[in-house]
Amino acid sequence: MSPEALANCITGWQKAKGRNDLPWQLHNDPYHVLVSELMLQQTQVKTVIPYFERWLQTFPTIEALASASEDEVMTLWQGLGYYRRARNLHAAAQKVVRDYQSEIPRSAAELKEIPGIGPYTVGAIRAFAFDAPAAIVDGNVKRLFARLFALPYEVNKSTNDRYFWQLAEHFTPARDNRRFAQGLLDLGATICKPQQPLCALCPLAKVCQALQLGKVNALPKRQQKKAIPTRKGHFLLDVSARGIVLEQRPASGIWPTLWCLPEVAQAPDAQLWTRFRHTFSHYKLDGHVWLATPPGNGTTRRIACHQLDEVGLPAPIRKLLQQLIASEVCNQQD
């Protein structure tokens, strides 16, 4: 199939059947595209939509985001996970305001200099914000190409990425790339799904090599992942009518710069209040929460229960504290 024929097929389908009413598509505003693309990294569209809408209510412009405090940014991001994206988005806004007169640049070379913007995001911004001929490759595109061309490459092996980028660059049209790029993503997300793909509804069914070879369920190939280890974590709960002692975590490691129950290296000689589990990309956390007074340091402070919404908290810690508040422990402790 020629690049022109593929582009015509995908853009025609996208116009008629694709997703055309997502919040960040309404104006094709470069700032909106930047926010949505960083939020969409490793996160599904349906999860991102309410966060995106709240974000624009609080930070309607890139200048508003650039001038916000880190606490404000992290508080609004909490629950979305992968918090480094929030810090990158904040830093990106500050760089754009400082170095590009608040205008997100169009060129790939300049976009690559902005924090948090890698090859995919460069292509996405250029395609969706400026309708420029820029290739995009993400999990949806890899899966679609792997089936369409019956590719033998494992899609979760980074050394194979170059094959998918070469295909994307070959088929990216010189015009109307905004719709073509969105069509690739829409086909992967809604038709060429990981499980139970809707091949009967696919506009590429007649030329899909995996379908012709009976290999749709065997593709794409994936490298077997290693088992995720489990690590214990020990957290201290010091609660009174004056609030809860929290510490701000360092800029590196898990939950960077968020406020959290103080963590210690070993289990203290104290009463166990509860346990929780949380899965990160590389390990599972088996959290133990102990009723104990943490050692005082410059990173801890007692925060009133009614002010917890004003600080950024990791999702599992926020859930625990909400349970604590619901039990009225804050009012009972001395």
Results as ranks from 00 to 15, higher is better:
212 Q>H: 12
268 P>N: 09
231 R>V: 13
208 C>H: 07
291 L>S: 03
175 R>N: 13
249 R>N: 13
328 E>I: 00
126 R>V: 01
207 V>N: 04
192 C>P: 03
119 P>R: 12
51 Y>M: 02
170 H>P: 00
6 L>S: 10
286 D>A: 15
13 W>Y: 10
147 R>Y: 04
50 P>D: 00
282 H>Y: 14
81 G>R: 02
2 S>A: 08
223 Q>M: 13
303 I>C: 05
58 T>S: 12
57 Q>A: 13
191 I>D: 10
166 Q>K: 13
163 Y>G: 00
56 L>M: 11
277 R>I: 07
44 Q>L: 13
260 C>V: 12
4 E>W: 10
133 P>S: 11
170 H>F: 14
92 A>H: 08
81 G>D: 02
214 G>Y: 05
79 G>S: 02
130 F>R: 03
292 A>H: 13
235 F>K: 06
128 F>I: 00
61 T>E: 01
151 L>S: 02
305 C>T: 08
209 Q>S: 09
298 G>N: 11
24 W>N: 03
197 P>M: 05
306 H>N: 13
273 W>G: 00
53 E>L: 10
18 G>T: 07
277 R>E: 15
26 L>H: 10
140 N>K: 00
271 Q>A: 12
195 Q>D: 10
153 Y>T: 01
329 V>E: 09
83 Y>A: 08
150 A>N: 13
47 T>K: 11
223 Q>R: 14
106 R>K: 15
240 S>Y: 10
173 P>Y: 06
323 Q>H: 15
293 T>P: 03
150 A>E: 07
326 A>R: 15
263 E>N: 11
57 Q>I: 06
328 E>F: 13
122 V>W: 01
277 R>G: 15
50 P>F: 02
67 S>H: 10
331 N>D: 09
249 R>D: 04
290 W>T: 08
19 R>S: 07
138 D>E: 14
49 I>P: 01
304 A>M: 01
25 Q>F: 06
178 R>W: 07
254 I>D: 15
127 A>G: 03
151 L>P: 01
196 Q>E: 12
329 V>G: 02
23 P>H: 04
315 A>Q: 15
213 L>Y: 06
107 S>A: 10
232 K>C: 13
31 Y>A: 04
263 E>G: 04
241 A>Q: 12
206 K>M: 11
327 S>V: 05
113 E>S: 15
87 R>G: 11
74 M>D: 13
124 A>T: 01
88 N>Q: 07
41 Q>Y: 03
152 P>S: 04
227 A>K: 15
289 V>N: 05
282 H>D: 15
263 E>R: 14
324 L>G: 11
323 Q>K: 14
304 A>W: 08
105 P>I: 06
182 Q>F: 01
256 P>E: 02
42 Q>G: 06
75 T>S: 15
308 L>G: 02
